[in-house]
Design a protein around this nucleic acid. Structure first.
Lengths: 258, 258
DNA sequence: CCAAAAGTGTTAAAGTTACACCCATGT
DNA sequence: ACATGGGTGTAACTTTAACACTTTTGG
């Protein structure tokens, strides 16, 4: 033991340092790897995305304080595990849909001066570059969802009215929203993760309208969606509404033949 | 200049080394990031994937010598750039389709002893973990494509008859093939990157059959595909075939309304 | 004239779109 | 009674799937 310690002469240590520095700046430079989650929900009116706020709400703040929830990847952690963990930290372990979306690795994605400032402050080390793996997830908005995450507040924001976000997070969200439109056509059943256990036809239709960005015909929508075997009508109706009460439906995950 | 050099005292250098080592082994341990390309082609009969062979063809070789072409990400290089570069190294700068597919980052994906052996041999440093960003690309198979890549041979292999591959590359390919089936339905025009400039209806149909894994009706296929505006018939026919000569078509990338 | 692959149309079924009126409830 | 949103059906059109015979060419 001792004898191996003794090998740390100035020359040896310095050569190791140079080796590592070269490694970090040349061919095999290793970027940091992070996982960011685009967590989407629907409140009956609008599509919303869960963002975490870093630091003060001061509008003169020196860095972009709103960002997607995410963090650097831990050692020995799978990408999917990291995404699940981030999600659970924020929303508890309720049901949700989560899927890898895409990696974003532009060398300039962390170069905005405001973001550099934040990174240096938050991570306490010089960050050259971060390759992030973005995840798309769909959850139900409820009160428990407003949890703090790593000491920072998380809150829901309408996807149509987003302020400036850190890094390329605005871009990532816009790409995810395009993907969501595809998803709503190909696997409409995953969208039910965003609805309450009981929902009306109107809620269901509004959600689809928000996602595909246009109004849908009421009658055609009923035929196409409400007749699916995985949507079952309940013997419950709205209460105390000043018009004919709407029926409630539930999602039956059993057989989801489309 | 000189005075700043002098700051590299033993203590300073050693503390830097420790800092870097800690950074590499604790919470924010940084995995290596690589880009691997699933390069697909069609030879008129079968779907094929371009694999690179590392080292000898000896069946008793100590490591899995066939793998997807790929490499670690360079500093200041975008993910898409890396994929394009890998592709160009192998195939020249002909037309091709290339798109990010998915990141694979299981901590155990590099733990097969054969693969560890190869990594140590090839990269000359201890590799804890590699997160790879897999790309899907479609190219035309021609003679120029059989290039060497970083000193290793590359060759086409039928996707239905693949031998064991290094790491999780067999899995990555199988996932990409599922994606290709989706792609062939949603953006059938990208498939033309795999066909020669002139092709017959039979070649086109065989390609689709290989991708979707079942036989297609000749007449329906003609109606659905050959009538697309982006497929234009030529006044050329096969020569010297012992049956009625088939017409050649070309792909017109101008207006690809589906 | 035979073998081998090319080329071509019709019909039935399913799915999609467009469109308008009466119903139930609270005020 | 009225204002508000709930709920329902039909007809035209488009898309998909199933299916068989004649044509061209070389040997």
């Amino acid at each position: 033991m001792r004898s191996s310690q003794k090998k740390n002469t100035f020359a040896t240590v310095k050569s190791k340092l140079i080796m590592i520095q070269e490694e970090n700046t040349s061919l095999n430079f290793d970027p940091h790897v992070s996982v960011d989650c685009v967590i989407l929900g629907f409140d009956g009116e609008s599509l919303k995305v869960l963002l975490s706020r870093q630091g003060e709400e001061d509008p003169n703040c020196q860095y972009n304080s709103l960002k997607l929830p995410g963090r650097l990847l831990y050692a020995n952690e799978d990408l999917d595990e990291a995404a699940e963990d981030i999600l659970n930290q924020l929303t508890g372990s309720q049901n949700h849909y989560v899927r890898q979306f895409r990696a974003f690795g532009s060398p300039t994605r962390t170069s905005n001066p405001k973001d550099v400032k934040w990174l240096e402050n938050a991570i306490k080390q010089k960050i050259g570059r971060i390759v992030t793996i973005a995840y798309l997830s769909l959850v139900r908005i409820n009160n428990r969802t407003h949890r703090s995450f790593a000491g920072h507040d998380a809150a829901w924001y309408k996807v149509n009215e987003l302020p400036d976000l850190a890094f390329d997070h605005s871009f990532i969200i816009s790409e995810v929203l395009k993907e969501l439109e595809v998803l709503s056509e190909q696997q409409p059943h995953v969208l039910f993760e965003m609805l309450p256990p009981k929902f009306t036809a109107l809620q269901l239709r509004r959600m689809h309208e928000q996602i595909c960005g246009r109004d849908l015909d009421v009658r055609n929508f009923s035929k196409l969606i409400l007749n699916k075997p995985y949507i079952v009508p309940l013997d419950e109706w709205e209460q105390n509404v000043s018009h004919r009460a709407a029926r409630y439906y539930k999602f039956q995950s059993g057989k989801l033949k489309i």
